[in-house]
Design a protein around this nucleic acid. Structure first.
Lengths: 153, 153
DNA sequence: ATAACACTCATGATATGTCATTTATTCCGG
DNA sequence: CCGGAATAAATGACATATCATGAGTGTTAT
């Protein structure tokens, strides 16, 4: 279906990407886990909340921000609530809704984890790319995101 | 730890990447699942085997090819064996070892899934990148892979 | 008003991934 | 040879992700 195969260059690029996409999250996850006891998904949720007004967001907003499935987030919030990183509150404006709120412990955790994580990202990635490369990389990622979000089907 | 934060441009690039890295595998996985009943991990294992001499590889070779953890592969092979996609055989040359062998059903599955998958990858990614962008993207991925594999620590 | 539909979120079952440990074998220095 | 270290692979316990579904609430057209 859909015609042609990938060219040799495309194949090579694609496999390089696959390799990277397998190694990078695993590495980041371990760095984070060892240095601060947080997992990468936890970190991402905490970042979202820490940047939100009043340290709180509706779950569906977190889903949009992170491009997660609703159910994944719900389970994740349950675990994070159990660990004291966030709390759940009801939403007065919308009876269906809820809020995920950053606890003090969560704020502390993200504050202490962020520098090490950011440093790792910078060292692994941005220190090794020229400005042009960084721009091209971002552009490529943006194109792919567009392709995935533009036509809903 | 490790000093400076990310610049605004780096942040933006990084978040774009994160967005892409969340959307792309999910999309590919669904396309594959719906069109051919295979999951992305299954597909990757089958590709490795289908390219190997005699359609067989030692598990540790698959791990190297895919950068997977050994235990993940072992569980995956168990599931794929149960589904009839691969078979396990002993290794005469090395008593500890084993072989994962592509079955006829596995070969059929990968053959029928590959064109659709490749087409999706091309359409989502390579059709939208100029040659320069593709090269820059590959280069960026390669740099990251280097960073992650060079110094074992 | 109210019925049909859409939205928000949670849950349970299942699939998948990770970590620590175990078993069996090979490799290598004495 | 032989004993200790390293390698190959599997396993069980647990963490996480996905899928299908359900319960409760809002929204809208008639």
């Amino acid at each position: 279906m859909t015609g042609t195969w990938l060219t040799a260059e495309e194949q090579r690029a694609w496999r390089t990407y696959l390799r990277m996409s397998s190694l990078l999250p695993a590495h980041l996850n371990r760095q984070l886990q060892q240095d601060s006891g947080l997992t990468l998904p936890e970190y991402e949720v905490l970042v979202s909340l820490s940047e939100a007004p009043e340290r709180r967001l509706r779950p569906f907003q977190i889903c949009e921000a992170l491009n997660w499935e609703q159910s994944r987030l719900s389970h994740q919030l349950t675990r994070m609530e159990r660990r004291g990183l966030i709390a759940r509150e009801g939403c007065e404006a919308d009876g269906r809704g809820a809020f995920a709120v950053l606890t003090d412990a969560g704020a502390e955790a993200i504050a202490s984890a962020a520098p090490g994580h950011a440093g790792t990202v910078r060292r692994l990635i941005f220190d090794r790319l020229t400005g042009d490369q960084r721009a091209a990389f971002e552009q490529a990622c943006a194109s792919i995101v567009d392709a995935l979000t533009e036509h809903p089907g």
